[in-house]
Design a protein around this nucleic acid. Structure first.
Lengths: 257, 257
DNA sequence: ACAAAAGTGTTACTTTTACACCCATGA
DNA sequence: TCATGGGTGTAAAAGTAACACTTTTGT
């Protein structure tokens, strides 16, 4: 199926199969080479990029729609995925913008077609293990690429706002939730974990204090093995104690009152 | 306009003027008599209660819709109001439930009427100053009443879940945001503020430590006046330093990393 | 043997907790 | 004058921050 067939199919099938005026957009974070990355789709006509997003089936749970999008782009399920904000400004979608694109596709639609109406979108953010991801663009995009969070190109519509808010939420959650499972491989070293935190927070942390604090959460299991083949003292390998990790996810880490 | 005219009007006007499949529900908290209260509407036919909610205009911002609901029920604007979660389970609304109600109203609608379709709802929670509120039920409800959070009656659909989640969010936010402006009168005493925290958290706090911590946030202004007419030592009156209060709202209070 | 990076420990400082005494007011 | 509740202080405990030395490994 080529792009135009996909779009035409969506336009007609969506009339009855999809919720109108509500969509999901996913900010998918990965971690690689000491960089926090985000997954973006190249627009088919414009020199602009977009967050992976999608529509919601008439009888589909909103979370399920977000999982579906995530799975389609990355091949992954069972990842951390959480809604973080609804973007409900009526000006956020832009009828003219979509009309131009459709004209370039050679598709003619009515001014009041459902696709052109105002859409409220639910923002989700996901944390995924970079090495496990198999990228796949959606039907209407040119390609699907990881971008360093510091080098994000120009995005369509309000996607930049959505991305910024996701990042702010992620940084916030670091304060009271454990992070790392789903972003790191099964086994990792303490410096790996620290780098992840430093990357998300964009801030250097003290190695020794970081270790103590992390171990204090009691969500880590230290293996007897060490990382091999490094030109200096080999760090221990850790994994998450999933039972405790999930407890910490539910109960929070640093509660104040 | 009586209830039936209201409902009929909604049914037809909503066809074009409202977003379908998306609504807002508001958990409106107030504080009075040392109790945390929530505003509920009595169902017109059933021995059940509901959160104040509403539909979203075709070109209305979602936040504006929530503000509108809040204003209509309480007479207030300029209050703290924040979205906290989207409830997107397709099973959350119940076609049969609404159909029964409409039959009792003597209104006949088609099975596929927009009002009967699945609705995703955005949960908002508000903090309001109890004494300033003028209660007004909506067009389709019998009455509008404050309920102690510990005595909440049975609610329709998934409104209990929404309420619980709002309360959990509020408790969470106490950890990193100042709370009190919008829930307390302009001037209040330290014991008043403490009682508010204790009520929200459902937990006793140490008087002296509470005071020190609160003052440490530097969001309070102490007046030279004291509360009059109390049968013991008169407590000082405080007000919020709005500039600092708002800074604290934006930046957070207890940041961890 | 050396450079690079990891492991570990100690001390000062800050924050939190627990607790006690004095003071002002209306009854 | 006394009971009630509010203002304030202090010492111990816990947690955080800053910092240094030793260990391991590949080159």
């Amino acid at each position: 199926m080529n792009k135009n067939e996909s779009i035409s199919g969506l336009l007609s099938a969506g009339e009855h199969n999809l919720l109108h005026s509500l969509s999901v957009d996913c900010v998918i974070f990965g971690f690689h080479d000491g960089q926090l990355k985000v997954l973006l789709l190249k627009h088919r006509h414009r020199d602009l990029w977009a967050l992976p997003g999608g529509f919601i089936g008439r009888e589909e749970e909103t979370d399920a729609a977000a999982y579906r999008v995530l799975k389609e782009r990355t091949g992954l399920d069972e990842v951390f995925l959480q809604q973080f904000h609804v973007f409900g400004d009526p000006g956020r979608s832009n009828k003219e913008f979509h009309l131009q694109d459709l004209r370039k596709d050679g598709i003619d639609v009515d001014e009041d077609h459902w696709l052109l109406q105002r859409f409220v979108t639910i923002g989700y953010y996901a944390l995924v293990e970079f090495s496990k991801v198999t990228l796949a663009p959606d039907n209407i995009s040119e390609k699907c690429v990881w971008w360093d969070i510091h080098q994000v190109p120009e995005l369509i519509l309000d996607h930049r706002t959505i991305l910024d808010r996701a990042l702010a939420t992620l940084r916030m959650q670091l304060n009271y939730q454990p992070i790392g499972y789903n972003l790191l491989p099964k086994q990792f070293t303490m410096p790996d974990l620290q780098k992840l935190y430093e990357t998300i927070l964009d801030k250097k942390l003290d190695r020794r204090n970081f270790q103590r604090k992390m171990l204090g959460f009691r969500i880590l299991l230290r293996s007897n093995e060490t990382k091999k083949g490094v030109a200096h003292k080999a760090p221990y390998l850790y994994s998450f104690d999933l039972k405790r990790y999930n407890e910490a996810l539910n109960e929070g880490l640093n509660f104040g009152w």
